[in-house]
Each structure stands twice: as C-alpha cells, then as structure tokens.
Design a protein around this nucleic acid. Structure first.
Length: 477
DNA sequence: CCTGGAGTTGTCCTA
DNA sequence: TTAGGACAACTCCAG
C-alpha cells in the first residue's frame, strides 16, 4: 500500500515525523501543493516564493526527482490523488496558521469519511501551543514565564529522527495518475520573478537541507561564542541566519536544539547558548500567540490601540520602503531587505520603531511590506514582532521605548561597516557624520562630495519632534 | 482573593 | 565623560 506524504513547511528528509511514519507502512508518494486558494490575504510574498522554488528543487533532488508538484486546492486535489493511486493514508506535519488549521481540519474530515487514514505529526515546534500553558490552563502572555516555566520545565523535546534509510518512493513520472490531478512541475509553479530582482538573493543564500546543516555547524563554531553581545551588531557574523530555513522546514527546531546542546556539552554551555536557545523560544512564543489569538495579524492585542491616531503619508511610506529616509541605518536595513530578502534583527527593531513611532504609520503597513520582501516571512513571527515593536502586543512594552536610529547606529555599527555596504553613496563621510548626514557641516559634506537632497536624502522627519508626538499620542490613549 | 515582584532589545537629562 | 534615575501605569504571573 502507498501512503501520501504531503510536504508543506517541512522540506527535509531528516527529522521529518510525517515522512518517517509514512515510510513504515510501505511505499510513499511525496507531494507538494502550491495553495493560493485558501490563504486569502496571506498568500506567500515574492521573496518567499523565490526561496520556495529553490527549496523544492533541493527536496526534489533529495527524493531522486520523485516529488510530485501541484498547484491548486488541496481540498480537492488530495482526495483525487488518493483515489487515483489507491493510497490508504496521508501523513503531514502540522502547520499553525489559522487558515491552514481550518483547511487541514476540513480535509481531515473529508478524507476520513472516504476511509483514508490521516495522521498529522509535530515537525516544527518544540512544544505544542496547547501544551505550554499556565497552571490554570490558559496561555501565557509574557515571554519569560512562557519560556522558563511553560517550555523549559515541560517535556524534553523529542529526539531527532534520522532520514528514512530505505525510502520507497512511488514514481508517477509520465503516468496517467499524475496527469489526472495535474502535475505542474516546478517551472509551472511560476515561483521565480519574471524580472531578475533576485540577483542579490542568489548571491546571499544557500538553500536546502544540506546547506542549512552546514550553516548551523558554521554558526555554532564561529558565531555562538560571542552571540549574546555580537548578535546586536549587524556587521558582525554572530547571528545564525537560520530563520528562512526554519520557516520552510529545511531544518527543524529539534535539530537546531540538539546540535546547539551538543555543542554546548562539548565546548561549555554558557549565557551565549542560553541566549541563542531563547531565540527558538521566541519563535515558539510567536506561534503560541498566533494559535491562541488567530487574528494576531490584524487586531492589536491591546484594543486601546484601535484608537491610536495613526498617520498615513504615501511619500513617507515609500521613502521607508525604498531606504530613502535620510537615516543611514534605516536605509541600510531597508536596502538589505530589498536586496537579500533578509534584515538583521537589531535593524528590524530600529526600522520598525521608526515606521510606527517616528512616522506614526500603522504597523500593518510594515507587516505587509515585510511579508512581501522577507525570505523568512512567517505569519506568527511577523505579526507578533510588529505588535511588539508597535507596543500593542501582549508584552507590556514600555511606552517610552522609541529607538533613536542615530544613537542605535552609533552604538551598533560604530565603524559604519554595515551602512557603507548598503548605502555606498555616503561611504566617504567620516564615521562621525556617517550616522546622520543631515547633521554634517557643509564643509564635511563638500569634502565627501555629497549634496544632500541629490546624492542622498535629507532626513525626512525630525527625530525629537516626532518622538514627542508619538509619546503624546500614546498618552492620549 | 490578595500580594508583590517583574516585564528582550531605550532615551534623555542631570549630577 | 559617565553613571544613575526618571519616564505611567498596568498587566501578568506565581506564591
């Protein structure tokens, strides 16, 4: 008998509970379905699609070209496929986006009614969101107790599952079955851009299961040692850059957890290891928030923010999006995002704070832009993080937490290495004025050959004024 | 039910 | 130059 393995956000062979379970029943048909019909507003953005193309290619390669690629509605495709190949069961690893939960629940009902076994597995979270609860059975709203009590004191994450050694993949190549359900093939999924905006991305990333395991080893060997401090400096190589791989499931958090613990056991566990593991905790926390608050992507957790006096100015928003704000750290971050599909975490906070507080733009605008541009765009992490920086999330972020992009720049990119990489037109400025060209004396600008407003924008907003206005608006709530 | 300590990531002013 | 305190008040969470 054959079991279908429906790949979704688990594009790997190692530590894949659904694949391993299915393979124990006999032959396996691996399938991926590009589902734009059920996602509504949260269909994958452009950068994510680009990543997906390469990740699917890598997975297909690992499966000796046996991955069936379809596009359409799984609710109709999977019953058809099951019938066509006489599958007696379907396995998948759980997803936690509300629309996916709803879709999968419907599908499960449907398949069970037609006598097909359905098994869902946990492939992407260390702790299920319905397990990490307070004593009284309700979900946590604050990270620290969630992580320390709800997670770390709970069940130990399961062992990593080896890739199936004797995988028997059903091949449908050219068979009528594949055509019956519409074998799209990877190019037909149209995941790649029609105009070549992906050059910077291709130069930045190595995609796929083998590549990410190498990346993890490299990070543990060279980045973890000074993680706690170094991770704040965007020019330093101390962040893991695992997020897109984790999002698409080329690696599981269990693998990261296990490898990091092993590294700690061999080299000494310290606050750097704890700090890194707690970043996995933030991922878990975001998923927990989304699971228990299914409208997290839309509704502010603190409803008083419904009355916040947001402003909207297309020109200011556009300047932010394209990295033309006149604040070099902001512009470097937004251009890093545009060019590579990624932005350093410290800089994400600074650009987010700037958009929401200094420009007083609704956090939805930032959320949407990141969704389209990030290769690690993840509904849980993106929604939770924008709410956090906007101050409307579950954690009571102090109202006075407004990042100053110039101060942050001086503190975390003191030599300007990050800025000069992404904002080369001001590279000739001395470090002292690199962080805020609008404050540079005319002579310094002339010396560097820069005309503000022509070669590089004047600051689009007054930091002091806009900060005070944001604080006043908050006070008015 | 009550109580008290704590809450990822900051900034600015003052002494 | 640098360190410390102010900046609201509230909710969360565990005992």
């Amino acid at each position: 008998m054959t079991r279908i393995v429906w790949f979704r956000q688990d594009l790997r062979l190692t530590d894949n509970p659904a694949l391993s379970a299915a393979s124990q029943h006999g032959s396996v048909l691996p399938v991926y379905i590009l589902d734009d019909t059920n996602a509504a507003d949260w269909a994958m953005g452009g950068a994510s699609r680009w990543w997906l193309h390469h990740s699917l290619q890598s997975l297909n390669h690992s499966l000796q070209g046996r991955l069936l690629l379809l596009r359409g509605d799984p609710l109709s495709l999977l019953p058809l496929l099951s019938e066509a190949i006489h599958a007696d069961g379907i396995h998948w690893n759980r997803c936690y986006e509300p629309w996916r939960i709803a879709r999968d629940a419907r599908l499960k009902e449907q398949l069970k009614d037609s006598g097909i076994a359905v098994e869902s597995h946990n492939g992407s979270l260390l702790w299920e969101p319905w397990q990490a609860l307070k004593q009284d059975g309700t979900p946590y709203k604050v990270f620290t107790p969630f992580w320390r009590k709800g997670c770390l004191l709970g069940a130990i994450p399961r062992q990593v599952i080896p890739a199936p050694s004797d995988l028997d993949c059903l091949s449908l190549g050219g068979s009528p079955y594949a055509r019956q359900v519409g074998d799209a093939g990877i190019t037909a999924l149209n995941l790649l851009p029609t105009i070549p905006w992906d050059q910077g991305m291709r130069a930045t990333w190595q995609i796929g299961e083998d590549a990410v395991r190498q990346r993890l080893r490299e990070f543990l060997d060279t980045g973890l040692g000074d993680y706690k401090q170094g991770r704040n400096f965007p020019a330093r190589p101390n962040v893991s850059r695992l997020s897109p791989h984790l999002h698409f499931g080329e690696i599981s958090p269990h693998q990261v957890w296990t490898e990091a613990q092993r590294h700690g056991a061999e080299n000494g566990a310290d606050e750097n290891l704890d700090c890194f593991l707690s970043e996995l905790g933030w991922r878990e926390f975001s998923y927990s928030l989304l699971y228990h608050h299914p409208t997290l992507m839309r509704d502010s957790l603190q409803s008083k923010f419904d009355h916040f006096p947001w402003q909207h100015d297309d020109a200011l928003l556009h300047a932010w999006q394209r990295g033309q704000t006149g604040f070099p750290l902001i512009d470097a971050g937004m251009r890093e995002l545009w060019q590579t599909g990624y932005m350093h975490n410290r800089v994400r906070m600074v650009v987010g704070s700037f958009l929401v507080k200094n420009l007083r733009t609704h956090w939805h605008r930032g959320e949407e832009w990141f969704w389209d541009c990030l290769v690690d765009a993840d509904l849980a992490a993106n929604s939770a993080s924008w709410q956090w920086i906007a101050g409307c999330g579950a954690d009571a972020a102090p109202y006075f937490r407004v990042f100053n992009p110039v101060t942050q720049s001086e503190r975390f990119d003191p030599q300007g290495d990050y800025i000069r990489r992404y904002v080369p037109e001001i590279a000739a400025l001395p470090d002292k004025y690199l962080h805020n060209p609008s404050a540079a004396p005319a002579g310094v600008l002339r010396e560097a050959g820069i005309v503000l407003g022509k070669d590089y924008p004047e600051a689009i907003v007054d930091l002091k004024d806009s900060r005070e206005q944001a604080l006043a608006a908050f006070k008015g709530l």
